[in-house]
Simulated assay, not measured.
Amino acid sequence: MTQEIITVSNFRKQYGNFTAVDDISFAVTRGEIFGLLGPNGAGKTTTLECLEGIRAPDAGQLRVAGIDPTRDRRGLRSAIGVQLQSSGMPESITPDEAMKLFCAYHGAAPRYDLFDRLGLAEKRQTQFHALSTGQQRRLALALAVAHRPQVIFLDEPTAGLDVQTRVELHTLMRELKADGATIVLATHDMAEAEEMADRVAILLQGRIVTIGTPIQITATGAGMTKVSVHTVEGRLLANGHAFPAVARHTVKDNYAIYYSTDIGRTVSALIEAVNAEHDTLVDLRVERPSLEDRFLELTNSKK
C-alpha cells in the first residue's frame, strides 16, 4: 500500500482581496517525485511556502510527514529540506562554513560528498557573493539534502544550471527517491517535469485544473500526434497533400508537419504518397503530445 506523506485538504490562502490559492486538495505519497506546475501567479510558491511553514494557510489542513507546519515548526525543519529560488545567505559565508552551520543545526555530519557531486569541491573556501548563480543554486541544493530529510522541496532547482550539472542534479534526485525521500518539484520547465515527476498537478489561478501522471495528463488533451516528414525532393511540401485524420499541418525547416488524430491512417497515407511521388523518405518522426503542449492547451483555455 502507498503511504501519504503530504496531505493538503481544502487549502486556501488570500493576500488582502486577492485569492492566491483557492480551496485545493491533493496528496503526495512517500518516495514520489511530485511536480507542481503553473504559470507565474498560479499559486505554486504560496503552496510551497505554507507546506514549508513559512506562511500560514487561511483555511484548510496541511500535513507534512504527519506534522502540521503551523504548529510544530521545529519538527518540520528536521523532516524537510528546502531549496528556494533565492537563498538569502550572507555574502561572506563560504560553502564550507554554510555546510557546517546547516548540518550543526540538524545535528548531522557535514556532507562534503555533495560538493564533489555538484561541482563545488574547488569552491569550498570561496565567499558566497563570488560564486556564480549556478554555483549558488548548487550550494542551496546541497544544504537542502545534507541532513537526509524525508521530504525535499525544490523550487526551480535547475534554473541557471549548465547541462552537465542539470544531468547530475537529476541523477541525485533519482538516488534520493530510491533511498525513500519524497520530492516536491516546482518548475516552469515542462520537459524536466515530464522526465522526472511521477505525477504532476497543474495550477491555474489558484486552482488545480488537472492532476495525474504526465502520460495521463497528455492523454486527456486534444490527442493530436505530431508527424514530421522530410524527403529528398520535398514534394509533400510543394504539393500540399491532404491526408486522413489530419487536423492541421504546417511546414518548418523542410519538414512537412501534420497533427493527426489517428497516426496509423495518417502515416500509411503519407508513405503511400511519398512512393507515388517517386520521392525518397529521409526522416519520419512521430511524437505524442508533450506535457508542455497540454499545459499550453489548458492555459489558453482559461484566457
Rank of each mutant, 00 (worst) to 15 (best):
37 L>V: 08
271 I>M: 11
265 R>P: 00
104 A>V: 01
27 A>N: 13
233 E>N: 14
94 T>F: 08
69 P>T: 06
173 M>L: 09
49 E>H: 11
134 G>T: 07
179 D>Q: 15
230 H>D: 03
183 I>L: 15
47 T>P: 05
132 S>Q: 09
166 R>L: 03
34 F>L: 09
58 D>R: 13
95 P>Q: 06
87 S>G: 15
162 D>P: 12
33 I>V: 15
23 D>L: 05
5 I>K: 05
108 A>T: 14
31 G>I: 00
40 N>M: 09
91 E>A: 15
63 R>H: 08
110 P>N: 10
69 P>H: 07
254 N>P: 01
265 R>D: 01
122 E>P: 04
301 S>P: 04
280 T>P: 02
47 T>A: 12
5 I>M: 07
178 A>T: 09
300 N>E: 13
104 A>S: 15
31 G>M: 00
13 K>L: 01
179 D>I: 02
2 T>H: 14
131 L>I: 06
286 V>N: 09
32 E>N: 15
33 I>R: 06
138 R>S: 05
239 N>L: 11
141 L>N: 04
184 V>F: 03
161 L>T: 06
98 A>D: 00
172 L>S: 11
269 A>M: 03
167 V>R: 15
269 A>H: 05
207 R>C: 03
4 E>W: 05
133 T>Q: 13
6 I>R: 10
62 L>T: 05
299 T>S: 14
90 P>S: 15
111 R>T: 00
19 T>C: 08
59 A>R: 14
6 I>W: 09
189 D>R: 13
54 I>M: 10
181 A>Y: 04
74 R>H: 15
158 T>Y: 11
89 M>V: 03
213 T>Q: 13
89 M>T: 01
264 G>K: 12
190 M>H: 12
165 T>A: 12
101 L>V: 07
261 T>A: 12
235 R>G: 10
261 T>I: 04
244 P>F: 04
208 I>V: 06
225 T>H: 09
130 A>K: 15
3 Q>M: 14
96 D>S: 13
113 D>L: 09
291 L>G: 03
77 R>D: 02
212 G>H: 08
18 F>N: 08
251 V>Q: 14
184 V>H: 02
16 G>C: 04
53 G>W: 00
265 R>T: 03
20 A>N: 03
149 P>L: 02
230 H>R: 14
5 I>L: 02
303 K>W: 09
142 A>V: 04
10 N>C: 09
56 A>S: 13
9 S>H: 15
86 S>K: 14
53 G>V: 00
116 D>M: 11
251 V>L: 08
36 L>T: 00
220 T>Q: 15
156 E>N: 10
18 F>A: 13
296 L>F: 15
218 T>M: 06
112 Y>I: 07
87 S>E: 07
